[in-house]
Amino acid sequence: MILDVQGVKFGYRSANILDNICFQVARKEIVTILGPNGVGKTTLLKCINRILSPRGGTVMIDKEDTRNLSRNELAKRLGYIPQRVEVSKMKVYDALLLGRKPYISWDISKKDTLIVDEVISSLDLTNIALRDLDEISGGEMQKVQIARALVQEPKLLLMDEPTSMLDLKNQHAIMNLVLKEAMKRGISLVMTLHDINFALRYSQKFVMMREGRIMYAGNSNIVNIDTIEDIYGIKVDIIQHNGFKIVVPL
């Protein structure tokens, strides 16, 4: 198991935002966390990479308890792409070098630039490498975020709504790119998505949350008319089209 979450709890003051969260992710597995707004999906991702500290439970990354890892060591194992990113006058190449931050002691090495170069050519970013982050498009920005996470050479990549800011074409382009690169590099993927159809198309495993708890978890069979009504409170129909399972609200 690359990720093993056991009994994670989180809350501010008395309110419990996450309660007894348990799930596992194997190597190269793609897991989507589904659930309505405010159910604690983002909080769960932040608890996994210790941007927030859970109140209880354990998070194991590749058999190591994250509590025993320094922030730097954690960053070598875990990439994180937040939903909202800050843009600045930083160059794309500098932004990617930053992905080597956990490995840098005094300054970048030859190895660091080789890795950045490899990712840049894989993701076809050469022509924007010297542009400022605030000059590039939303799709390019998301590619840069993914590239930075790949440069980090993580075992697991967490993505919070990776497609929410993108148009239809870019949503699919970005997701295909992430899956291809993740499989090539042996990285597991955990993401949150609002679009169930999108999740059904690209994901293998699903975790469905309601009010800070995991209600259902498993393969695409668990995403059905009953569970969707239970989680989202909306009646839907499920049809098959070109081999894809499609959820249509009634």
Partner: peptide
């Protein structure tokens, strides 16, 4: 200097890159 560069990418990204 690398920590300060990471802060420029936003607090969450900086934390995810191992910066306290």
């Amino acid at each position: 200097r690398w920590h300060y560069n990471a802060l420029d990418a936003g607090d969450e990204t900086a934390k995810a890159l191992g910066v306290n």
